[in-house]
């Protein structure tokens, strides 16, 4: 019998004013090629808009991309809003971009555990998502 498990739904988001979208677009295609349903917010979204989109699209995963150095202001805000909307327990949040090592423990602490910097193999991101989903398919 065919496996009827639904596709993993992923929202890829660019919070803040950062316009670097090469990485997020490459990841979008890689996840899509790996069989996931990918929704991309486009650029220049506020944390509120990101969480609103995640709610509307009922996603399993949110991928946050930031290369402008604003991640320590924006990512915690997204996590706060997820908590307020009671989405935090079934949404896996991962992040990518330029995130200095010193910030990683702080992001881990607020629940962002998959952090992927420059040079990451897209297979590593796919594996991480598949084995860390917070709700069943």
């Amino acid at each position: 019998m065919m496996n009827m498990v639904r596709k993993i739904r992923v929202l890829l988001a660019k919070p803040g004013l950062d316009g670097h979208d090469r990485g997020v677009k490459v990841v979008a295609r890689a996840l899509r090629d790996a069989g996931m349903e990918v929704i991309y917010t486009g650029l220049h979204k506020s944390s509120e808009q990101v969480v609103e989109a995640a709610l509307q699209e009922d996603v399993d995963v949110i991928g946050l991309s930031s290369l402008s150095g604003a991640h320590m202001a924006l990512f915690p805000r997204v996590m706060e809003l997820l908590k307020e909307n009671e989405m935090i327990d079934d949404t896996l949040v991962v992040a990518g971009g330029i995130i200095p090592d010193v910030d990683i423990p702080k992001l881990n602490e607020i629940g962002i555990k998959g952090i992927f910097g420059p040079g990451t193999d897209t297979a590593a991101i796919i594996d991480f998502i598949k084995s860390n989903l917070k709700r069943s398919l």
Partner: peptide, 11 residues
Amino acid sequence: HPMSLGEVGKL
């Protein structure tokens, strides 16, 4: 501005 959050003086 709210959209400037975290970006001031960064890039």
